[in-house]
Design a protein around this nucleic acid. Sequence first.
DNA 1: AATGTAGTCAACCGCAGGCAT
DNA 2: CATGCCTGCGGTTGACTACAT
Length: 286
Amino acid sequence: MEGPIGWGRQEVDGWRKGPWTSQEDKLLVDHVRQHGEGRWNSVSKLTGLKRSGKSCRLRWVNYLRPDLKRGKITPQEESIIVQLHALWGNRWSTIARSLPGRTDNEIKNYWRTHFKKGKPSKNIERARARFLKQRQEMQTQKQQQLLQLAGQVVAKDENEDGGGARAPGTAADDDDDDRGSAVVDDACAAPAPAPLAVAEASAAGGGNHHDDLIMHDAIAMDFMCPMSCALLLHGAGVVQGGGTGSCCGSTASDEYGSGDEDGATWGSLWNLDGVVVDGAGACTLW
DNA sequence: AATGTAGTCAACCGCAGGCAT
DNA sequence: CATGCCTGCGGTTGACTACAT
């Protein structure tokens, strides 16, 4: 950082650093009111503030923006953060877009405080346990469905030409070690749209929905198709156009999933490598 | 009551990507 | 096409506060 100097009211290269004063805040707020956001480097020239554009932007985004939500992260928001972190990893700004009024910095701090040291809160532990349980149930359910389906296909084939019956485990085989491809493939045939409203309503500060509901819906949906869930959560504005969804790789698992007591690390619940999301939010495999 | 430790928050830095020239 | 500037992002740090001993 600044070496031994620390955060006094020092100036470096003519720029003030350290905590902002109320006068500086006022200058910045007035400036943004007049000129809007952006062009941060011109703020100092126009206002006389001895702050770099970077510093001005940060102060505005993290502290002065009028739509910021103050106060503690709610359990609902916490659940969403967990979900989205599992989905996106450390893409704090992306996660923040799904939590109106919260900044990436806030979420980042929250995550580091609560989860970085491998000591998740009770709420998170419950959410995680529920997630894992639900995942297991859904996998079982899916396997049964596939077996049923396979049985029907076999019966049909036998009826039609009596040959060419495949091994029933073709698709289900993926489930053992690959939580991404088979699941996504399956789910994207019918992505569920409902949780968007739930997540957004809670994130918007309503807090009226029980967190169980949030987790249930979010988990179910994420499990079915994480990418589409995220796209829905983010609205039309955020589209991972044609990109690969390798979101659950190193960072997430490194930070949280070290305690692999149950074999499935929290941060690597989904491996989306190889998943492509098109503009409409439909996932495909390549 | 004093001290140590952990948690929280605000701000900084370096880097990367996008865009204009 | 190359270069430089601006903006945004993620990681890190230091000050402050709350809690425990």
